[in-house]
């Protein structure tokens, strides 16, 4: 778990669905996205290639955050897994829609 004033990420194993679920809270921007990247890369490196990002409580997502999500998405696919976003907040949905990623990631 990583926590700062404006950002928090927690991880849990969903045995039933066979995924590692990350709940992201707050602002995903240039300052906080390195923590997101580290957490997700750690998961990939330890063989957890099926990743779910719960973004229900994300109030902000910058292009830097999208870049990290796309990077991990590609790495997960290459490793035979999958990354998807569940319960995107209105802001997340709006930003992903702007760059035509809604249908692919959610």
């Amino acid at each position: 778990m990583v926590k700062s004033e404006t950002f928090e990420i927690t991880k849990e194993q969903d045995e039933e669905q066979g995924v590692a679920r990350f709940t992201v809270i707050g602002r995903v921007n240039s300052k906080t996205s390195p923590a997101l990247k580290n957490e997700l890369e750690d998961a990939l490196n330890s063989g957890e290639v099926n990743i779910v990002l719960n973004m229900f409580q994300v109030e902000y997502l910058s292009s830097d955050g999208i870049r990290i999500i796309l990077k991990i998405y590609k790495e997960a696919e290459q490793a035979g897994g999958k990354l998807r976003i569940e319960k995107p907040s209105e802001m997340v949905r709006s930003v992903l829609g702007m760059v035509a990623l809604n249908g692919m990631l959610i």
Binding site: S63, R67, L70, K74, M104
Partner: peptide
């Protein structure tokens, strides 16, 4: 599709 996209240049 996502796999064919560059990951940057969105800002």
């Amino acid at each position: 599709p996502v796999m064919a996209r560059k990951i940057g240049g969105l800002g």
